[in-house]
Design a protein around this nucleic acid. Sequence first.
DNA 1: TCCTCCGATGTCAGTGACTGACATCGACGG
DNA 2: CCGTCGATGTCAGTCACTGACATCGGAGGA
Lengths: 176, 176
Amino acid sequence: MLDAAIELFGEQGFDKTTAGDIAARAGVTERTFFRHFADKREVLFSGPGSLDEMVAKGVAAADEDASPLQMVIAGVRQAAVELVAVRTREQAADRVRIVEATPALRERELLKMATMTAAAQAALVERGVGEPTAGLAAHSAAAVFQTAFTRWVSGDTDLGLPECVDEAAAALRDLY
Amino acid sequence: MLDAAIELFGEQGFDKTTAGDIAARAGVTERTFFRHFADKREVLFSGPGSLDEMVAKGVAAADEDASPLQMVIAGVRQAAVELVAVRTREQAADRVRIVEATPALRERELLKMATMTAAAQAALVERGVGEPTAGLAAHSAAAVFQTAFTRWVSGDTDLGLPECVDEAAAALRDLY
DNA sequence: TCCTCCGATGTCAGTGACTGACATCGACGG
DNA sequence: CCGTCGATGTCAGTCACTGACATCGGAGGA
């Protein structure tokens, strides 16, 4: 079903593909499609294991005497490690191509990213960081992740995703 | 039309309000509604003067020998100044209440924010900042703006929006 | 003054995303 | 062999949005 969706989106684009098309290729009914996914876009965002949990785990496991920023960055690095275990760069690139081509999908991606940011913030607060600081740090970490992911997918580098995170984190430090 | 929409969303919520309802209260047809707004959500995001332009203007006007981060923050501060000239805190709070209550609207808001971030990044690049640095700085500035805006709207402070931006910018510096 | 043109609006029919209610069917325990 | 239950199919309906075409009122020229 997920495969059917990715195929069709790749072939004819997201907008030209109806929910019925996807269901048909997957051998089910449109109705069952909507029982599995809240809406048509969600097909592309419902892999196993959410970014949220990965990041939260990473933050929780971060070094005791690290700064808030170091803790969240450890969190997104952890997420990066777990992510490459599930998806190849090739798959990620295909997915990115589809998402970038459709505003509606970009929107959904931003929502997922915001959810991850909120999870990171909550995890920081859990570890005793103040609210405003946690929010700022979480957003910074999200920026690092996004920068790293974009670079990784672009193919301009041979680095793995976690190494790209390290690189982006270093660039962030240089902002000051 | 915009007023009709805000009223109805406040009264019965976004989901329970059809595009036809809004049009009817505004004394026009549903079809005309969709000629003015790309979709139902867009009503809440199509005020006069976009954040993008304000930020870009602010970045362009920033001090010559400022750091990239200082430039973008000047940009969002400029946007803050122009924004309070158009909307009262009360109006902003009403709008926030509606948006927060509806995932679909949160999504759209995130898209607008991302657009602003992209504009900020482009403005930085325009002033000679390197791509990755510009991206990170723009995201940081977006985080500052969001933090400031949230605080301003919350009513926990008597500060104006621009002053909240200053406050958040100071908190960002303290991350290091 | 009348005609013409044009932008804004109304009308209508159609597509597609999603939802609720109900029927069906196959596995599984009793 | 029967009852139950979760997953699926069926069907009808609502609503967001779109394209094609008709209408209408005002600005400007003959």
